[in-house]
Design a protein around this nucleic acid. Structure first.
Lengths: 234, 234
DNA sequence: GTAAAATTAGACGCCATTGTCTAAAACGTC
DNA sequence: GACGTTTTAGACAATGGCGTCTAATTTTAC
């Protein structure tokens, strides 16, 4: 409902098997309705109406409600995965200004992986239907937060080796980094509205400042340069 | 299903209007089923079966499914509220060993307010049905996390005034304190199994250590006394 | 012990939803 | 323009859950 209003745009991206316009339209509508209503309360008729598609067409592409549901989850997870990888690999190799770099990273992470449509969908879904589909929960854990903390742990280790950080336990630090990044947005993240860009930036700044106060090289102390982050594309 | 297996035990606590054994049994069963299935998928028949009660009895006490649902939420929220107050007021007035005190506090908080049955229920519920019942979400926010961070902010201000902490923004610090306390348990907290006591203690220790590294008086630095927390009742 | 209240089991109507089926219509391709 | 495929609208049975009703039974109160 929020992202990608033009279904055709996705055909160019990854033309997986049978990704015709109808399928995409159905997947998007189903994601919307499943997310709003939950699996049980979501009705095929409503999905068909939102997708501007006949009910029979849905049953034509996906044998039953369950099939459609797992297809939706798979689709959303693939996109979220790609986005996470993109954000992770955008972290600059040669650290220029650590505080700025980390702040931009947190902003990107929150904006594109946690507060975005897919992130909210997956979190809500896992909690709503995770008990019914344990493999769904497990898959989400491994590909979502698991991958994030693993990659983050490696990143922190790299920074510590350079002497920019002083960390005893990289995994703990990685989890704390994520937790701090979400501290100011938890109410938003858990449910409801998306935070504004200003809120995102302030939250990221608070998080990074505290993180660096705990793990930063004590030499730099504070003061120093007032962080100036101009372009935070995407 | 987990806590209070003996319904009669609650009659002594707060004998609110009409809190007979049947009502309590129904409320408990309904909480269980609503939590597992969500509102839509939960069936009155299953609730009746779990409560070992006739379906008609449920309709006798609660006019319809919706009525039962809000009664369940109210009930769980009341208990969670009382527990949160209890944990908050258990923080020692005259700080002895700050690190130990905070650690015990985090353990109690996580164990009795976040990882316990009611906490998980409310969090799951708010995310599952919050969109349908905005007032439910709002009420939970005010009485749950809202009250917690407010009280925590006051506590941190008290500690800062004593010189034990150096904090510029108490609200931010309070949110970060909560976030750090949950950092190691987020996967558990979000869904699934309850962490063991050892995990709870280690998570609390990690959280408090990082928090004090960021906000603690730099004089004490580290080393000092190895924290020794013996009794952490409740 | 008896009367009143609460509880039970089961049947019932009603409604929404799922998934199937069919005939008509739209679409694309040659 | 003709043909095969896809889509559509609607009817259809089957299922299951909600909420009501009733008669029998248990519990409670006096």
């Amino acid at each position: 409902m929020n992202d990608r209003m033009i279904p055709a745009a996705r055909m160019t991206g990854h033309s997986q098997r049978g990704q015709c316009a109808k399928r995409i339209s159905i997947l998007d509508a189903a994601a919307d309705v499943f997310c709003r209503q939950g699996f049980a309360a979501a009705s095929i008729d409503e999905i068909a109406a939102v997708a501007c598609v006949s009910r029979q067409t849905i049953y034509n592409h996906y044998r039953e409600k369950e099939t459609l549901f797992v297809a939706v989850v798979e689709d959303v997870m693939n996109r979220a995965n790609a986005m996470l990888f993109s954000v992770l690999s955008a972290f600059p190799d040669n650290a220029d200004n650590l505080e700025d770099d980390l702040t931009v990273f947190v902003i990107r992470l929150n904006k594109n992986c946690i507060c975005n449509h897919d992130g909210k969908f997956l979190r809500k879904l896992v909690q709503t239907e995770g008990e019914r589909y344990p493999h769904l929960f497990e898959s989400w854990r491994q590909h979502g937060p698991g991958k994030l903390t693993t990659a983050l742990s490696a990143l922190l280790a790299r920074l510590a080796q350079k002497g920019a950080l002083i960390i005893d336990d990289f995994d703990v630090a990685a989890r704390q980094f994520v937790a701090l990044g979400n501290a100011d947005l938890q109410m938003m993240t858990l449910f409801g509205g998306t935070p504004s860009d200003a809120e995102l930036e302030k939250a990221a700044r608070n998080a990074v400042r505290t993180f660096l106060r705990a793990y930063g090289r004590p030499a730099a102390d504070k003061a120093g340069t007032q962080p100036q982050l101009a372009a935070l594309s995407g």
